[in-house]
Lab assay of single mutants.
Amino acid sequence: NQASVVANQLIPISTALTLVMMRSEVVTPVGIPAEDIPRLVSMTVNRAVPLGTTLMPDMVKGYA
């Protein structure tokens, strides 16, 4: 089972991601792979991401 990136807090729309905002967790459905966390830092989300939500590729500008 692959770990995915999960929001560690509410991430408001257009917020630049930082390490403290994300954690890795094995979830269903599978989202962005946890090993991509370093790549996600400073990318922005294009929607509000509630606490505990799995980050999907279409939620992060420039990721997909």
Rank of each mutant, 00 (worst) to 15 (best):
V20R: 14
N8I: 05
Q9C: 08
P50M: 09
T18I: 05
K61L: 15
V6G: 00
V41T: 05
A64H: 13
V26F: 12
V60F: 05
T53Q: 13
L40G: 00
S24T: 13
R39C: 12
I32Q: 01
Q2S: 13
I11A: 02
P50T: 09
V60E: 02
V26M: 11
A64G: 10
V49W: 03
M22W: 03
Q2A: 13
L40H: 00
I32L: 05
E35M: 11
R47W: 08
A48D: 15
T53H: 15
G31D: 00
A7T: 10
G52Q: 01
I13K: 15
R47H: 09
R47A: 08
N8Y: 03
L19R: 12
P29F: 04
I11P: 01
S24L: 05
Q2G: 15
V26S: 10
S14W: 14
K61H: 11
V5W: 03
S4R: 02
P33H: 08
A16E: 09
A64N: 14
G31R: 02
P38N: 13
V45L: 11
N46G: 07
V49C: 06
S4Y: 03
G31A: 02
T44V: 11
L55A: 02
R23Q: 04
I11F: 03
Q2T: 15
E25P: 00
R47G: 05
K61P: 14
G52N: 14
T53L: 10
E35T: 13
G62N: 10
P12K: 07
R47P: 02
P29C: 05
A16T: 09
V5M: 02
P12V: 04
G31N: 01
S42D: 11
V60S: 01
V30K: 07
M56N: 05
L40V: 05
G52A: 06
V60C: 02
V60N: 01
Y63G: 04
P50F: 08
I32H: 01
L17H: 00
R47L: 06
Y63S: 04
L51A: 15
L10I: 12
L10T: 10
P38G: 11
M56H: 06
S4K: 01
I11C: 03
K61W: 11
L17E: 00
P57L: 04
P29Y: 04
V6K: 02
G31C: 03
L40T: 00
L10N: 15
I13P: 12
A34K: 06
V26Y: 11
P50V: 06
G62Q: 10
R23V: 05
M22I: 08
S24D: 07
T53K: 08
L17F: 03
M56T: 10
I11M: 03
S14D: 14
P29V: 06
V45E: 01
S14K: 11
A3E: 12
Y63F: 14
L10S: 12
A7H: 00
R23N: 06
V60I: 13
T18W: 03
I37W: 03
V45P: 01
T28S: 11
V60Y: 02
P12E: 10
N8R: 10
M22Y: 03
N1R: 05
N46M: 13
V26P: 11
L19I: 06
M56Y: 09
M43Q: 06
N1T: 15
E35G: 08
V60P: 01
M56L: 09
T15K: 05
V26W: 09
S14V: 05
V41Y: 04
A48V: 15
D58P: 12
N46W: 07
A3I: 07
L17T: 00
P50K: 13
R23D: 04
N1S: 15
P50Y: 12
L10K: 11
G31K: 02
G31S: 02
I13F: 13
M21Q: 04
V41Q: 06
G62S: 11
M59S: 06
D58S: 11
I13V: 12
R23S: 06
R23L: 04
V30T: 10
M59A: 11
A3M: 12
P33E: 04
T28Y: 09
G52E: 03
M21G: 01
V26N: 07
V6L: 08
R39H: 08
L55Q: 00
R39V: 11
R39F: 12
D58Q: 10
R23Y: 05
K61I: 14
N46E: 08
P57C: 07
G62M: 07
R47K: 12
D58C: 13
T18L: 07
M56Q: 13
G52M: 05
V6M: 04
Q9I: 10
V26R: 05
S24E: 09
L40M: 06
L10R: 13
M22L: 11
A3P: 13
L10M: 10
I37S: 04
L19A: 08
I11G: 02
M21K: 01
A16Y: 08
T28F: 10
A64S: 11
T15M: 08
V6Q: 02
G52H: 13
G52L: 04
E25T: 09
E25I: 06
Y63H: 04
A3G: 13
G52F: 04
T15A: 13
D58F: 11
P50N: 11
A48F: 11
V20P: 08
M43V: 04
Q9H: 12
P12C: 06
I37F: 02
M59L: 05
D36G: 07
T54H: 02
L17R: 00
M56I: 11
M59N: 06
Y63R: 03
G62A: 11
V5Y: 03
I32V: 06
V49Q: 02
Q9T: 15
V49A: 05
V27Y: 02
M21I: 03
A34G: 09
A34Y: 07
P33K: 10
V41S: 02
P29A: 04
T54Q: 03
Y63P: 04
E25H: 08
M22F: 05
Q2R: 06
R23M: 05
V27L: 06
L51C: 10
A48C: 12
N46R: 10
G31P: 01
V26Q: 12
G52I: 03
P50S: 08
Q9R: 14
R47D: 05
R39Y: 10
A3K: 08
M59H: 09
S42P: 00
L55P: 01
A34N: 06
N8D: 10
A48Q: 14
S4G: 04
D36L: 10
P50G: 10
S14Q: 14
T44G: 04
T53A: 13
P38E: 10
V45M: 07
V5G: 01
Q2D: 15
I32W: 02
P57I: 06
T28D: 15
L55N: 01
P38V: 13
Q2W: 12
T28G: 05
I13T: 15
V49E: 02
P50L: 10
T15R: 07
G52V: 03
T18S: 09
A16H: 11
T18E: 08
A64F: 06
M21W: 03
A64V: 11
R47F: 08
A64Y: 05
